[in-house]
Design a protein around this nucleic acid. Structure first.
Length: 827
RNA sequence: GCCGCUGUGGUGAAAUUGGUAUACACGCAAGACUUAAAAUCUUGUGGUCUCAAAAACCGUGUGGGUUCGAUUCCCGCCAGCGGCACCA
């Protein structure tokens, strides 16, 4: 056992050294004449735990594809880098009293070593790091451009606030409404933050999807997130006041049934709406609501709550006064922050009305059921025939009344047509140290001014403490030398913005970063995107982008937005960054639960690789299930893969020593090999790695059983097919059969092609069915497959089929060439 | 709550445009080698019926539908999983 172990370790070290001396094998060339393929995997956050099994799984998947495409003769770009800003590093740095820069450097070194060992064929000369000032200078440059184009603005936005720790918390740090560290109930506070106007791009982001080749589920998640809805903004005048409340609705046909209006607890005019006698109740309610997360507030599992403000609005269509409520299921930063309530035609509204005893005015009935009464939330009607709605009575709600009432209300100037989006503007400020400083300066005279382009980057200064400050501001705010500056416009005294950017900022354009030389300061202030346009044109768009489902909505949307923005600036050749998106799956622990340190079910790829070898880990990860599936780690199945690789090694070693004296090629082995080439090529092309490996197992089983010798060409083919999956073992064997003039490495050799003529078998087995039920099989000569009448005749003549046809009449004969004959009988 | 996905042997899973359900692998059982164990190799392995075999019947979460034929397409139901804007 120990000796066997040593053998694969020696093999790995030997070939890792060899590849190390030839980094050009894996370089993407900016000026190649070959067709390009840009294969992108999401770059990791370099955590202190080292490479996780999920990384190994995803990167192996990308690596197999990149190696396959490279062998097929494409000029492949397969880069890697570090998405290194973020909370975990900051928290770890605080805990261990180290600089986050130091922690990041240590972690990325470990990541890179582990990746090299796992034989990922990354183009290391293009490595990027989002925390490198040469990199984040351009992240900041993008922000400056956003501001210049009016797409970044300051606004009061809510954050999670822990009153005990006195810091702002990420959603992740809020557990059941309590602070993760101290358990105190978390409050919501609003503070002034930078917001990016992604909503301006909502239509472009929707429309651009049509030009991509994303799988349907990814397109859907983008479409649903943008959530475009056509409707009406209805203006309600507040009784005895000059205030107005505007409510967005998709269903204005229910206007005659509106019996209350609800505004969010953060509604800007709320104070003016609350009457003296309701003040105490409303303030108490707002205090409670501050403690609830957004998800809780909108969740159906919690009861909808609210409180009366004491004021009324007038329904413009009938001049009826209806009460104004505050309810926390209405969100301030979504829509107008106010909604109208129609109890009988929306189940949530019904429950709310029932709870607070509000009026229910039914304005629709099912067709031909004029006396239908809605008395439970399960009976609400969402599309009926109009009643109690004056001239609109009798119309079908959605198909007729919706348009008629909308037109009428707009004509009367009670409402405007409005397109609403689920998508909200993007809060871009974080009150933390470990992120890109937002390159803005505030001057009393000139307001917010951008840092000049040739002054970028605004570097992260050294600080004593990395903890957020007790007033909720970033630690940068405590460094006077950083904060105090002069206004770029008037030269007067000014202060810097001390918030930093969210983690998304660096990952929005990293696939561009790989293409460019970011280092040279000389290129400033001219932007590198224009200066290095040739490289960008050569490589973009990304051909295949492999990533997790958790990024199919936000990361994809944000990065598509930034890309489209840069396109509009005129620095990019096209407006969609990714041609195709592939989702990878998730590896669960051996217990079927998500791997986590606290559950103790974490599998570390490096440990497994040290025990069984890198090739075994890679092949097992690709074999355990479909690439986009959720699969539990199972060491026993891994042993099966190890057995396969051992047998593969033994079989091919033996063949190699034999082929040196014998290079006859048997037709039977040709058939097996050729079929495998076809199957594996098609499977790998479509990321069906598990079946590709199954086909190679079949190949090995059949070849070993046949006892025939392989020709030297077929030996090479066998090695090439497995090479993307098991780079070490195949390189080792390849070097033993490599002859003068062959490529230096199996990994830069040319992927084999199959020929149809070898795939034909002389005889084919076909199924014979009676009424669709399989009854017998016949063996047919391949040449005759096209002669339908003869094969049906043969099918009818077998003993078994004759028995089934006794005393029956055939009423139909169906023939599927090469597959089956189905006889439909009667009697 | 909203959005999305999945359901096939004891297990992970496979099945081209609707055309022989369970490829490949794990596990299990029996056997070979061995003093023995491990490793390795060989054979078998959806269910019912049978000493066994043959034959037949049943079988892709569940109830319907379309079709000569449904794991695949359509409708209803049940169960489980994932995402939800400050984790990345």
């Amino acid at each position: 056992m120990i000796e066997e172990k040593k053998a694969f370790i020696d093999r790995q070290e030997k070939w890792m050294r060899f590849w190390g001396t030839h980094p050009e094998f894996y370089h993407g060339k900016d000026d190649s004449e070959k067709e390009k393929k840009y294969v992108l995997v999401e770059f990791p956050y370099p955590s202190g735990l080292g490479l996780h099994i999920g990384h190994a799984f995803t990167f192996t998947g990308g690596d197999v594809y990149a190696r396959f495409k490279r062998m097929q003769g494409y000029n492949v770009l397969f880069p890697m880098g570090w998405d290194a800003f973020g909370l975990p590093t900051e928290n770890y740095a605080i805990k261990t009293k180290q600089r986050p820069q130091r922690v990041t450097a240590d972690n990325t070194t470990v990541f890179e070593e582990q990746m090299k060992k796992l034989a990922f064929s990354f183009d290391w000369q293009r490595k990027i790091d989002t925390t490198d000032p040469n990199y984040y200078r351009w992240t900041q440059w993008i922000f400056v451009k956003l501001f210049e184009k009016g797409l970044a603005y300051k606004e009061e936005m809510p954050i999670n606030w822990c009153p005990s720790c006195k810091i702002g918390l990420a959603n992740e740090e809020v557990i059941n409404g309590k602070c993760e560290r101290c358990g105190t109930a978390v409050e919501r506070r609003t503070i002034s933050q930078w917001v990016v106007k992604i909503t301006d791009y909502a239509d472009k982001l929707l429309e651009g999807l049509e030009r991509t080749n994303f799988v349907e589920k990814v397109k859907l998640s983008q479409i649903n997130w943008i959530g475009k809805r056509e409707g009406l903004n209805i203006n309600f005048v507040v009784k005895n006041s000059d205030l107005k409340i505007s409510c967005f609705t998709k269903y204005p046909e229910t206007i005659f049934g509106v019996s209350w209006v609800v505004v969010s607890p953060e509604y800007s005019d709320l104070a003016k709406l609350v009457t003296e006698e309701q003040k105490a109740a409303v303030y108490e309610y707002i205090k409670q609501a501050a403690g609830r997360s957004e998800l809780d507030r909108t969740s159906g599992t919690l009861e909808k709550t609210g409180v009366f403000t004491g004021s009324y609005v007038i329904n413009p269509v009938n001049n009826k006064a209806i009460p104004i409520w505050v309810g926390d299921y209405v969100l301030a930063n979504f829509g107008t922050g106010a909604v109208m309530g129609v109890a009988p035609h929306d189940s949530r509204d019904f429950l709310f009305a029932q709870k607070y005893n509000l009026e229910m005015i039914q304005v629709e009935v099912p067709k031909d059921k004029a006396d239908y009464k809605i008395d439970s939330y399960e009976k609400v009607i969402e599309d009926g025939v109009m009643i109690g709605s004056e001239q609109f009575n009798g119309m079908q709600a959605r198909s007729e009344a919706n348009k008629a009432i909308s037109d009428w209300m707009v004509e009367q100037k009670w409402a405007q047509y409005k397109t609403e989006y689920h998508l909200r503007d993007w809060i871009f400020s974080r009150q933390h140290y470990w992120g890109e400083p937002i390159p803005m300066i505030y001057c009393e005279k000139d307001g917010w001014v951008t840092v000049a382009e040739d002054q970028l980057p605004v570097a992260l200064p050294e600080v004593e403490h990395y903890e957020p400050t007790d007033d909720g501001k970033s630690p940068l705010s405590k460094i006077e030398s950083f904060v105090k500056t002069t206004c770029p416009k008037c030269g007067g005294e000014a202060v810097r913005e001390t918030d930093t950017m969210p983690n998304w900022a660096g990952s929005d354009w990293y696939y561009l970063g790989y293409l460019l030389s970011l280092k040279s300061k000389v290129e400033s202030p001219k932007n590198i995107f224009t200066q290095q346009q040739e490289k960008i044109k050569h490589w973009l768009p990304v051909d295949v982008y492999i990533g997790g489902d958790e990024h199919n909505t936000l990361h994809l949307l944000y990065s598509r937005f930034i890309y489209k923005f840069l396109f509009d600036l005129g620095v990019l050749p096209n407006d969609e960054p990714y041609q195709k998106r592939v989702s990878h799956g998730v590896i669960l622990g051996p217990d079927g639960a998500r791997m986590s340190k606290s559950k103790g079910n974490v599998v570390v790829p490096e440990t497994v690789a040290d025990t069984y070898g890198v090739d075994v880990v890679r092949c097992y990860l690709m074999f355990m299930g479909p690439f986009d599936g959720t699969m539990a780690w199972d060491e026993k199945t891994l042993m099966g893969v190890k057995r396969f690789l051992d047998r593969f090694h033994v079989y091919f070693s033996r063949q190699i020593s034999h082929t040196k004296t014998n290079s006859d090629s048997k037709d039977d082995t040709n058939l097996i090999i050729q079929r495998t080439i076809k199957g594996v090529t098609e499977d790998v092309e479509n990321f069906r790695y598990n079946t590709a490996l199954a086909k190679m197992m079949e190949m090995l089983n059949k070849l070993s059983a046949s006892g025939f010798q392989l020709s030297i060409e077929n030996v090479k083919v066998g090695l090439q097919l497995l090479a993307p999956f098991a780079p070490y073992i195949t390189e080792d064997l390849y070097q033993q059969v490599r002859s003068e003039g062959d490529p230096m490495s199996v990994h830069i050799s040319r992927w084999p092609k199959w020929e149809e003529k070898y795939l034909m078998e002389e005889k084919v087995t076909m199924a014979v069915a009676i009424n669709g039920k399989l009854r017998d099989q016949i063996v047919v000569e391949s040449k005759k497959i096209k002669v339908e009448s003869e094969i049906i005749k043969q099918a009818k003549s077998t003993e078994k089929i004759k028995k089934w046809l006794e005393n029956k009449t055939i009423i139909k004969e169906i023939y599927v060439p090469g597959k089956m004959v189905n006889l439909v009988v009667e009697g």
